[in-house]
Structure formats: structure tokens, C-alpha cells
Design a protein around this nucleic acid. Structure first.
Lengths: 229, 229
DNA sequence: GCAAAAGTGTTAACTTTACACCCATGT
DNA sequence: ACATGGGTGTAAAGTTAACACTTTTGC
């Protein structure tokens, strides 16, 4: 057995990438191909380079391990318990992002990860390091945020039906919502635009497709709108 | 001139300690007695030790630089731009806390800080490093949090009048609040307890003193209460 | 007795909730 | 023609917002 290298004052980044598919929230995991926790599932993460800003590192690491680009990453929390990494002192800065699963093709560009897969958040295995704790924190954060910020759209296709949106809220927040009231409310905010398109190939009346009008939302926000589901 | 040491992969902690006095929010600053930014005002911060958890480090550093103990510190954000520290790569984990100014005596126990002082957040000088950015972030965070969590009390004496509480909200959130509606609402939550005491030595009708009943609040929270100013 | 802040209730406007049927489309 | 989800309005309950005067105390 090889002697593993020891880390001293090292910083890493771990990304919690969340997507929504088949009515459930999923998180992107990799299978580790290096020590420690070799072979175990983990968040896509790696060490930060000396010459890169943290935010840039998060984007680079995500790209290398999963092939994902352009995910809008936000910082979640920094985990720095002494014993969180078996090979030494490594504090990790966790980032999270919401993405449209269908927009992306997962292709690790590094030998560090064997593969990248989407796992349902309600069926998480034991993850490497303190990654279960990190995911739990991300889930709490996003549930909270979903209530007060118009971010549900980031998980849906560009164009979506109101029902899809409602189901997303119901699934993530674990609540039931009255359809009529939901439609009334979300449309009254006036930041959803009809695309003019409709669903196709459904065996029932086709629903209108909407998109999130970000420019409009920013305007309304200036005027003092504050979104609340 | 001495050659300053260079840092490589180093982590530090900076604390944003907020207090409320004379109707204004204040932040605790020290005057730096060491390189870099010697002589300049800065947040109380220092390097993390290899053998301590981040959260423990935050508490230790606060104690050493200011003499404050028992402040409930929460993590704010981690700042890790490459150029944020002139002597090398240092990422810093920022923590914040709300405290009752009157409860504490400021006494630095380290030569690292020349003195610790409370500065009105609306009159901040140029701070060392990226500390102005860190303070700004803390202020945004606490304004948000104040609206949805019962944390205003942490800035007031144990016993306070409803008017003091109202003024705190008005000052920090920069809004005007109707006195009758405010009292009605805050009392209706039923987590403020009359202490039986009244103001003394005021040249007008003495107001009742209340305290925050944390146990009661926790109960109500379980039952699904959610506070909103 | 007067100055200064404490304390108190009611109404109108608005927001939220609860609830049931017809419509459009594909098979 | 039937099965499936899409789409719509109204009334009651609850919440928020606006507003002015009397009370207590120290000087």
C-alpha cells in the first residue's frame, strides 16, 4: 500500500449541483478515483490552485469533473473541522448551483472522477468526507431560497408549463398547492411571459408554455416587488 | 525596512461583531499593530491554527483581540480572491455576531491589536484588506435576517421597552413603523414576556420592560410559527 | 400644570384561502 | 365518445394599514 500524502493548510472546493428531473430533486455526484475515499461517491470537488480566485476555482473544478460549464455557482458555506479530511487539514468551501439537467451532457475531463451521475436527493448513499452534511446544508438553503426568490425556473427547461412549475414547488417544498391560487399568484407577479408556444404530443389539451422574463423581474425588483411563493 | 513574510495557502478568520447603541448599529474594529496594513483599522481577525476547528478559531480570535467571550458567531462568507492579501494567498472565513454592547468590556489580550473600538456602520473608514466588502456583506445579511428571525433582541439589553425594539427595527431596516401596529403585531407573537419591571428615572411615564422568552419562541416555532416583522 | 413619551381600538383595503366545473386535445 | 390534464371566478376569512387621543410620570 502506498503512503498517502499528507495535507497541511490546504483548501478545496466542493460543488453541490442540483437538478430537477422526473419530479424529483437530484444532486450531481462523482465516483472518486483517488485517495482518500477511493471508489466512494462524493461531491465534485478538488483543491484550489494558488493562482485562482475561489469563485473561479469552483467553476474550473466543476468543468473538469463533470464537463458542466456556465453553471451559476453561489457560495454555500465553508467546512473546516480539523478531522474532516483523513489525510490532513483541508478546509473546503462549498458552492451550489441550480441547473437544467437536460441542457447538459456529463463528461468528466479529468481522471480524478470515474463518472458523474445524478442521484435523487432522497436516496443519497454514504458520501465521502462530510459531504452528506454539505448536501443537507445545500438542501436547507435552497428550500428557503425557493420561497423568496424566483429561482425555480433555473431547474426547468427555458420553456415550461405552469403545472410543471407548480409541481416543482410542491416536490421541493413538500407542500400541496391549490392550482387556481397558484396560477393567479404567479401570473400576478407579471414576470412570466407567454412564449406563444404550446405543449406538443400530449394526449390532452396542450398547456401554454411560459418563460421567465428576467429583465422584467429586475425592473419589478427595483420597484420594490418582493417575491414570495 | 523588514522583509515581510510571505503567506502561502493560509487561512484566516475575520469577525464582524455588531452592536447597537445610541440608536445606531456599530461594528467592532481594531487598530492593527502588525503587517500588513499596520496602523489601519480592520476587523478583528487572525490566522487559524492547524489544530482548531474553524468555528473554535473564530471564538478564540475574538477573545484574544477584543476580550469578548460568549458571542454567538455565525459564518458569513469566505473571501478568497488571489490578491486580497498583499503578503500572499490568504483566504479568510468571515463570521458575524450580534451582541449587547453594554454587556461587554473591550480589552484586547494580544499585542496584535492596539485597541478595539465601536464604529458606527454609517461612518466606516477605509479598512484593511477587503474588510469594507466583508462588513457590507454582513450588513446585508443581518438586514435580511432581522426581518424573518427574532434576533433584534440580541442587540438590546436583556430587558427592553417596546419602543426601543421598534427604534432598533426602524434604524437598521431604514423604515418607519406605526407604533400601534408594531405593538399589536410583536405582542401577538406571544414570545415577549413582561418582566414586571418598568423604566426608571425617565421624565415621563415609565414604559414596561419586556424580555424575549426564547423557550416560548422555540415552542411556537415547532408549532409552525414563522416570524416576520 | 406642562412637557414627553406610553399606551390603546376601530375601520377600510387588501390578501389569502377554499372550492367545482367546462375546455381542448389525442386516442 | 371518453380520458386526461388545462384552464378559469367568486365569496368568506384573515391580515395589514391608516389613523388620534388619553394616561402617567418627572420637573
Amino acid at each position: 500500500m502506498l503512503m498517502a500524502k499528507m495535507y497541511q493548510n490546504t483548501f478545496s472546493i466542493d460543488n453541490v449541483i442540483l437538478g430537477f428531473d422526473a419530479g424529483a430533486l437530484k444532486v450531481l455526484l462523482i465516483e472518486r478515483a483517488e485517495e482518500a475515499f477511493i471508489g466512494q461517491m462524493a461531491l465534485p470537488g478538488n483543491l484550489v490552485r494558488e493562482d485562482e480566485n475561489l469563485d473561479d476555482g469552483a467553476a474550473r473544478i466543476l468543468l473538469e469533473l463533470t464537463g458542466l460549464e456556465e453553471a451559476h455557482l453561489e457560495q454555500l458555506h465553508t467546512f473546516g473541522n480539523v478531522d474532516r479530511h483523513p489525510l490532513g487539514r483541508v478546509i473546503t468551501v462549498a458552492y451550489y448551483s441550480l441547473i437544467r439537467i437536460s441542457n447538459y451532457n456529463l463528461q468528466p475531463r479529468s481522471t480524478f472522477a470515474r463518472k458523474a451521475v445524478w442521484i435523487n436527493v432522497s436516496e443519497l448513499p454514504d458520501l465521502a468526507f462530510d459531504h452528506n452534511i454539505i448536501v443537507a446544508k445545500a438542501l436547507r438553503r435552497i428550500k428557503r431560497k425557493l420561497r423568496h426568490h424566483p429561482i425555480g425556473f433555473e431547474l426547468l427547461p427555458e420553456q415550461f408549463t405552469l403545472r410543471q412549475l407548480q409541481e416543482l414547488y410542491e416536490s421541493i417544498l413538500q407542500i400541496g398547492i391549490d392550482t387556481r391560487n397558484f396560477r393567479k399568484k404567479i401570473l400576478s407577479y407579471d414576470f412570466l411571459a407567454e412564449t406563444g408556444e404550446k405543449q406538443k404530443q400530449v394526449s390532452h389539451r396542450a398547456a401554454k408554455l411560459y418563460c421567465f422574463d428576467k429583465k422584467r423581474y429586475k425592473e419589478l425588483e427595483q420597484l420594490g416587488l418582493n417575491f414570495d411563493l
